[in-house]
Design a protein around this nucleic acid. Structure first.
Length: 445
RNA sequence: CGGAGCGUAGCGCAGCCUGGUAGCGCACCUGCUUCGGGAGCAGGGGGUCGGAGGUUCGAAUCCUCUCGCUCCGACCA
């Protein structure tokens, strides 16, 4: 993309409404525009990041054997009356009446609807196990939305639901989700720690929240200093291998890691003092096993040799839109955002220091074409701006790599490759820069 | 939902107390110079002062109502 033809409304000054880094930077980098309290338009740059995150979530869910569907945002009230949550949910649920006076709601989650789909189409235990998920907009009418997309009223979320015959099967589904989530966050360059959590209004007795450590997090968390070092790395996972999947879960959940809701001071204090860490965390996902709570209430049963039995269920969510904010909270400096390679909106930025100079222009054009030809998505700043303005824009929007083309180097076929994260620059030929970019992204494409 | 604020040009703000029909910085447009870290000079355009009602000769300014947004607290993916 050529910046002169793009839509990137960056702000030089800080918007007054933004209190935390991610909100401020998303507004300044032209990623979002607030339309109402807690409701945002996603401008081109923000939309690209949102879609990259969504894509990673999809890929990891499919890899785990889960099946994508898409359910509507508007749901009929009667499904929620069946489960009893229509009355239980309270004013956070946005209730709507259509022209015929029928009660509807903008879905805050989809347990009821997915259970309805299941009971309509699944009759036999032979059709199990089954895990369906979707990525869809949700609405919770928060009393006090804040922090930009981190705590909006409208939010984009992946929610998945497993249907199994036995509790053992359902717990395997739970473990499968935990591992797939760990992979998902790692691919985004995030360390999200699974912590034992409270089940809240969804109910159930087995649940973990995934938290990204950041000073602006909403929850206080307590953990063993060794936990953030746990990594999946590039190990292969066979999601059908129950023992292997369970082993990984054990590895990631044995050390102490809890939110303030489940924190146990006595257990925590058994750790040597230097390993006891207290911090703040942003919740970016949660997994639940809740058994037959909805299947019994809504008659979601399968036929077995022993008769009709309600299915065992769990539900599992990843806050896709919230992750955009969480990623920025975890990756920024005083100049702007620093995107991890896995989610960056553009792979590399090209800065032409002397727009209009024949040699610089043609060098940039050639580099741009070569990058596109190799499957990259570069952003070429071809505006008639001064160098300082171009650098400041690149730093703000946080592309992890920048190639600078100036009149000095062009004569000798030299460009400059700069890392946004370290600020380190290296002069090399265009061809060498292209090769380096290929190398860098080999693990992310 | 309790408490506290704020709505004046695209963005950030001053003016309000002590009424006399708007101003600054950035951005934008034109020209000249500048050109590796958000340039300088000169000129220029842009605002029913959130909305409605009231007081007054006269309201951004005072009064009432209303809508929107933000912050602290309780609540939450």
């Amino acid at each position: 993309m050529r910046l002169s033809r793009y839509f990137l409304p960056v702000l030089k000054e800080n918007p007054s409404e933004a209190q935390i880094a991610s909100h401020r930077l998303m507004l300044r980098a032209g990623m979002i525009k607030q339309q109402q309290a807690g409701i945002y338009s996603w401008l081109p740059l923000g939309y690209k990041v949102l879609k990259r995150i969504e894509q990673i979530v999809h890929e990891e869910q499919v890899r785990a054997g889960h099946i994508p569907v898409l359910m509507p945002t508007l749901q009929p009230a009667d499904l929620w009356q069946e489960s009893g949550r229509y009355d239980a949910y309270g004013p956070e649920m946005l209730r709507i009446t259509d022209r015929h006076g029928r009660d509807m709601l903008y879905g805050p989650t989809n347990e009821e609807m997915i259970t309805d789909i299941f009971r309509a189409h699944v009759e036999s235990y032979k059709q199990l196990p089954l895990t369906l998920y979707h990525i869809q907009w949700k609405f919770r009418d928060e009393v006090r939305p804040r922090f930009g997309v981190m705590r909006g009223r409208e939010f984009y979320m992946k929610d998945g639901y497993n249907f199994d015959l036995t509790k053992e099967d359902a717990l395997h589904a739970y473990n499968r989700h935990m591992v797939s989530y760990l992979r998902t966050y790692e691919r985004m360059g995030l360390t999200a720690i699974p912590m034992r959590a409270d089940s809240g209004p969804i109910g159930g007795d087995n649940t973990h929240e995934f938290l990204v450590l950041a000073p602006t997090g909403e929850s206080e968390v307590f953990y063993d200093a060794q936990v953030p070092d746990l990594k999946l790395g590039d190990r292969e996972v066979d999601y059908d291998d129950r023992e292997a999947v369970a082993e990984i879960c054990t590895e990631f959940t044995t050390l102490y890691a809890r939110t303030d809701e489940t924190h146990d001071e006595a257990v925590f204090n058994e750790l040597p003092e230097e390993r006891r860490k207290t911090a703040r965390g942003i919740e970016v996902g949660q997994i639940f096993y809740f058994g037959t709570k909805y299947s019994e209430a809504m008659g979601a049963t399968v036929k077995t040799p022993e008769g009709n039995v309600p299915v065992e269920m769990g539900s599992h969510g990843i806050g896709v839109s919230r992750l955009v904010g969480a990623l920025i909270e975890a990756n920024h400096d005083d100049k702007g955002i620093i995107w991890p390679e896995g989610v960056t909106p553009f792979h590399v930025g090209i800065v032409n220091l002397k727009q209009g100079d024949a040699a610089c222009d043609s060098a940039c054009d050639a580099l741009y074409k070569a990058l596109v030809q190799k499957g990259f998505d570069p952003l070429y700043d071809d505006r008639k701006e001064r160098a300082g303005a171009k650098f400041a824009t690149m730093d703000l929007i946080g592309l992890p790599w920048r190639i600078t083309v100036g009149p000095r180097g062009v004569a000798a076929n030299l460009v400059e490759l700069t890392s946004r994260r370290t600020g380190e620059s290296e002069e090399m030929s265009s061809e060498a820069a292209l090769a380096r970019i290929q190398e860098i992204y080999a693990a992310h494409l």
